[in-house]
Design a binder for these strands. Structure first.
Lengths: 237, 237
DNA sequence: CAGCACCTGGAACGATCGTTTGAAACGCGC
DNA sequence: GCGCGTTTCAAACGATCGTTCCAGGTGCTG
C-alpha cells in the first residue's frame, strides 16, 4: 500500500494489479468458488504466494477486486444524482443508476480493457448473485448507501399525484431493475445465442438504451395491488 | 446403521429423493461449486457414495435437481399459453411465464416444502447465473424452447400498430424480465434487509403482482430509438 | 435354500484446494 | 561496501475435494 512507484511511469504493472486484473476476469467468468488461486496466479503470471502476501488470502483478493470497481461507480452515481438535483426526471435518475456500471467497462481508471464490456460486467453480475457469505456485509455496505439514495430519489418522484406506489412497491421495483441489470451484465452472451445473434452483447449503447427504456417503463407502471387494473381479461385468482 | 425396514410401503423417501432435496436446498443457498458432496450427503442423511451411484457424480446430481423442477414448470407454462391462445393480452402472457416458477415453490410434486418460497427459488436464480460450463447446453436446451415460444407470443403482440419494437429489442426486454425474476428469486432476502423489512420475501403473492406489473410496464415501454434527453454523444448501434 | 440384481456402508484413492514457510532477490539510505 | 525492510519464489503443509472400490445388506425369483 505504500505508494512509492507512483512517480515513474510504471513500465511493468505491479503484482498487485496483475492479480486484481486476473481475478476480476476469472471471478467474473467462472465465479468465486470455481476459480482456484493456482489458476488465477498462473493467468496473472505471478507466484501463488503473492495472493496471500498482498491480500491476505482469497477472500481479501475478492474484496479488493470488488472495491476497486464499485467505489468509483458509486461515486459516479452520486455525482450524477447531485448534478441533476433540480430536475427530477425518472429517466435521468435511472440513467444515473444504470449507466455507470454499464459503461465503466474497465476502460475508466487506466485499467486495460481487453474485451469492451465483458469483464467488469460479468464480475458485477456474478457477485450480486453468488454472494459468498464472507462478503455479505461487504456488499451490503457498498450497495446500501447508493440503494437508499436512489430509493429516496425515486420516492420524491413517486409522490406525484396519480402515482400510487407505496414504499414496499418502490423497493420491489428497484430490486427488479437491479436484477435486470445484473442478469444482463452477466449473461448477455446466452441472449446472443438465444436470439440467433440478433442481440449483440458487445453493443453497450443499444443494451443501455433498451435497459433504460425497460426500467423506466417498469418503474412507471401503475400500482398493482389486487385491484384489477383495467376492464380487460385477466381472470386470474 | 440402524436401518429400519423402510421400503415396501412406498411412503418413506428413498435415497434418491433425499439427495435431490438436499442438493436443491444447498445448491440454492451456497451455489454449486461451494457445496461439497460431504456436506450435502450429511444433510441428506445418506452415504457419500450414493451420489455417484444414483447420479454418476456431482454434475449428474445437479442436472437431475434442475430437471426435476424445470420440466414441470415449463410444461405448466406451455399449458397456460395454449389455454389462452385466443386472447392475446400481454399481461396474461407475462403471467404464464412468471407465475409457474414463482409459485411452484416445491409444494407441487409432493415434495416437502419446508420454507414456502425459498428453496426452488434460490436454486433457480443461482443456476441461471452461475451457469457452470458443464450444463451450459443443458440449460440452453431446457430454456431455449420456452424462450422461443414466449418470443413468438410476444412478437404477435408487438405487431400491433403503434408499438415499434424490433426483434432485437424484444429479445433484450425478455432478457430483462428473466433477470428481474432470477434476481428476485435468488436474493429477495437482501431486499428485505435493505428495505428494513418493508418487503417480505415470503409474500409470494405480492412479489408476483409487483413483478408482473413491472414486467408488463417494461415490455410495453416505447422503443428507445436514440437521442436520450441528456445529450451524451456516443453514437448508438 | 441358492442366485442375482439392486442398493448402502465405510474406507480409501489421487488430485487439488488455500495457506504457510523460509530463503533468495530486490531497492535504497547510509 | 553493509544493513534492512519489501517483495518474490519454490516447496511443502494439512485439509478437503470428487471419485472409486468392495464387502455387506436387502428384496425378489426360482
Amino acid at each position: 500500500m505504500p505508494t512509492k512507484s507512483r512517480t515513474g511511469a510504471a513500465r511493468t504493472p505491479p503484482t498487485r494489479e496483475l492479480l486484481l486484473d486476473a481475478a476480476e476476469r476469472l471471478f467474473g467468468e467462472q465465479g468465486y468458488s470455481a476459480t482456484s488461486l493456482r489458476q488465477l496466479t498462473a493467468a496473472a503470471g505471478t507466484n501463488l504466494a503473492a495472493v496471500n502476501y498482498h491480500f491476505g488470502g482469497k477472500q481479501g483478493l475478492c474484496k479488493a477486486v470488488l472495491a476497486r470497481r464499485i467505489a468509483p461507480i458509486n461515486a459516479e452515481r452520486f455525482r450524477r444524482l447531485d448534478r441533476l438535483r433540480r430536475r427530477p426526471g425518472l429517466e435521468a435518475i435511472v440513467r444515473a443508476f444504470l449507466e455507470p456500471p454499464l459503461r465503466a467497462t474497465g476502460c475508466a481508471g487506466g485499467v486495460p480493457c481487453t474485451s469492451p464490456a465483458a469483464r467488469l460486467c460479468r464480475l458485477f453480475g456474478r457477485i450480486s448473485v453468488e454472494q459468498p457469505a464472507f462478503l455479505r456485509d461487504f456488499v451490503a455496505e457498498q450497495f446500501g448507501l447508493i440503494a437508499r439514495r436512489f430509493a429516496a430519489e425515486f420516492a420524491r418522484l413517486a409522490t406525484r399525484p396519480g402515482r400510487g406506489l407505496d414504499r414496499a412497491s418502490r423497493w420491489w421495483r428497484m430490486h427488479f431493475v437491479v436484477g435486470a441489470m445484473a442478469h444482463t451484465l452477466q449473461s448477455a452472451d446466452s441472449l446472443a445465442a438465444l436470439s440467433d445473434g440478433q442481440c449483440n452483447p458487445d453493443d453497450v449503447d443499444q443494451m443501455t438504451e433498451e435497459l433504460v427504456a425497460f426500467a423506466v417503463g417498469g418503474l412507471r407502471a401503475a400500482a398493482c395491488r389486487r385491484a384489477p387494473p383495467r376492464a380487460r381479461g385477466e381472470a386470474r385468482r
